[in-house]
Design a protein around this nucleic acid. Structure first.
Lengths: 394, 394
DNA sequence: CCCATTTATTTCAAAAACGGAAATAAATAA
DNA sequence: TTATTTATTTCCGTTTTTGAAATAAATGGG
């Protein structure tokens, strides 16, 4: 399966950092079962290559003996480009290893994959020049796409939003830029972003949802993104809530997307004669007491709440993270969702499950895309470096 | 974390067999990335200890070169006792390493844990005597319990059916019998049973459901039982289907159990004046055209179908296995469930997801319990043996 | 302030595990 | 029968890992 396999303890250690973020050598030894002596050597190598960095901990609750020194990925070890082709206009960002956005740049929307690749090259050069990051420190490029993605082969199988079918976008971008490129479904990218760079850094079990035109969802299970048997996990948007509900473009009736998707809600608002261009406007109307707006948002929240309640009881995540990219804010939609969740899960889940809504910055999805690149680099790309010059006998 | 850690390749190989059932040395090398030479040595050790056995394959589609010889766990390496305290009267079975039931024995229902432990000892002795299996070959005891179970500590936290709270049943049984004992939630046990001994031997992603008085559910993800963040995964029985539905004993309304649980359906039947003691009777009435019976079963199937459709779209399992312990048979309930599932999942899931109903034998749950013991033995119990006499330098 | 205690990390030699190349085995196709 | 193909084993050198002892860096108590 693996040709020149990276020695296994190395992988184990990197995985541990991917899953836990920050760990002392002692933690590592305890967690992985590798002896402390071996841990010393491995971390020394990783420190030498600049991947890990000692982190001066000021722990309030310092115990008795010598304090442990924590290690984590070094922010400046390398940089990643993240591209979100989900929204329009698309955004390209440059992030470091810890997910700090060091530069961003807007690119015009473009449906033609080849043209997109060229645009990304320009954006990349632009960002590197502006930030002064040398090309050699750019490790890889991550692309988040709405739709069905074959992440192993870097192909977007189908995207309704972009009108793509079987587009080998990773390869196109690699050819255009000369950098390794990876694609991911946007919902998966968000989950990876929350794990590596966001609010889920030390969670091993969580689900994340994007509240956008449609509802995207992905799960982390046992510290790893769970893609499902054939990559289809997370299709919560098409959970049926009412078999007699409105027809969805998927052909079924009463899908969650038809109630809680931004697109659907705006459609309902328009049909009800409301004057609003965005979900934010709709929330605004609800705030001033517009009954129709309130009803639409409440129904949406109710639907989302029920679907997420099912998710919680089926999968028992530690946390459910909602990323509000649409602009709901702290309004009636969010309040209803939370309440319906709480009313429809068993008490023991109520006590142990965190529900977190957060409004996200414009760069959120692009940053998520960068996290895909970072994760891939850490999982596979790094092998070449380790086998290369740095690791040879000290 | 692990004191005398078993060398890692050993664990990897055993895990590979737990997850794949039957593998040749070549398969193993490809799957694990371990070199063929190492695989030869490891499998030799496992063969020597009698854990693995070469399996004379008569492969129809034999290729060109030397045929691979498959290995799998040796059925006679050891035996396990499985106890199902879920149903009444409880059943105790003796199974070999491949899940063949070599002896079974009924025990009277008993709510008192201490008494149960004593009864299990008697049953154990009885089974060993009757089958001629020497005590030394009995590796461990598995107990499946309905309710909330702390599987790490062997404690049943709460079981409404048995009226137990914080019962350290594993320890009680261990003291009574002198054998290592493990407890598992019955739904989890069924999933493990399907994986190790049943219809899921070579599936890495599946969910299994028990259709009994209530609906139990558990998931295998990436080849491992997924218990959730705090052991609560699989509570599909309390998925809300209708917020205005009948009140469940959990305090919520319209839970799946209230429509598709055997107990609830029989209650509805009784309320409708139908004369039936079992779900099987109810199906019988439906078969001869009784409208009320048909309606109850159809509603139940509809509810179950919707909940499972959600499960499929959220988790994308390869297969959903229904274990019919209640006696529905191939009736209207099953047909409706299947149809509703098919109508409420996206086409791509319809193509890739197997839905399997199977009626199970009386010994099914006890066998599942034995599989819990077998899995625990393979994961942890075996360490002592390997570190012991057998593995020393050849 | 010094010393015993505690916990973390490193050092170093011995042992174990692992990989690579070549040999051997067991089949099929010609 | 021989060439070819794939699986498995053998052999040997090297890398990795471990275990025990040493060292480091803190706290708490005289």
């Amino acid at each position: 399966m693996n040709a020149g396999l990276l020695r296994s303890s190395f992988i184990v250690v990197i995985e541990a950092y991917l899953q836990h973020g920050m760990l002392s050598r002692s933690d590592l030894a305890a967690l992985t079962g590798i002896s402390r002596s071996a841990i010393t050597e491995i971390t020394q190598n990783l420190l030498d290559m600049g991947l890990l960095q000692e982190f001066p901990v000021i722990q309030e609750k310092q115990g008795r003996g010598r304090p442990a020194v924590s290690l984590r990925f070094s922010a400046s070890h390398g940089y990643f480009i993240g591209v979100s082709v989900t929204d329009t206009p698309s955004l390209v960002i440059l992030a470091d290893m810890q997910g700090n956005v060091v530069g961003e740049c807007e690119i015009p929307p473009s449906d033609a994959p080849q043209k997109l690749a060229t645009t990304i090259r320009q954006a990349m050069n632009d960002l590197l020049r502006r930030t002064g990051v040398p090309r050699s420190r750019l490790l890889s490029i991550g692309i988040a796409v709405t739709g069905v993605v074959d992440e192993n082969n870097g192909v977007c199988r189908y995207s309704a939003a972009l009108n793509w079918r079987d587009v080998p976008i990773a390869e196109l971008v690699k050819k255009a830029t000369g950098a390794e490129a990876y694609v991911g479904n946007d919902a998966n990218a968000v989950a990876i972003g929350e794990k590596l760079f966001g609010r889920a850094r030390d969670l091993r079990h969580f689900s994340s949802l994007i509240l956008g035109g449609n509802i995207g969802c992905a799960h982390y299970i046992e510290g790893n993104l769970y893609r499902g048997y054939d990559g289809g996990a997370g299709e919560i948007g098409h959970v049926t809530l009412d078999v007699n509900g409105p027809r969805c473009r998927c052909g079924k009736n009463g899908c969650l997307d038809m109630y809680a998707g931004g697109t659907a809600m705006l459609g309902l608002a328009k049909a009800a004669g409301l004057d609003c261009q965005t979900v934010h406007d709709l929330e605004g109307l609800a705030t001033v007491g517009n009954a129709k707006a309130m009803s639409i948002l409440r129904n949406g929240g109710q639907a989302l709440g029920l679907a997420v309640a099912s998710l919680i009881q089926i999968n028992n995540p530690k946390c459910v993270l909602f990323a509000d990219v649409e602009g709901f804010g702290k309004g009636i939609f969010q309040a209803t969702t939370r309440q319906v969740i709480e009313n429809n899960i068993l008490p023991r889940f109520l006590a142990s499950t965190e529900i977190v809504f957060h409004q996200v910055e414009r760069s959120f999805l692009a940053r998520a895309a960068a996290s895909v690149a970072a994760q891939q680099y850490l999982r596979t790309g790094i092998v070449s470096r380790v086998n290369g010059s740095t690791l040879q006998k000290s």
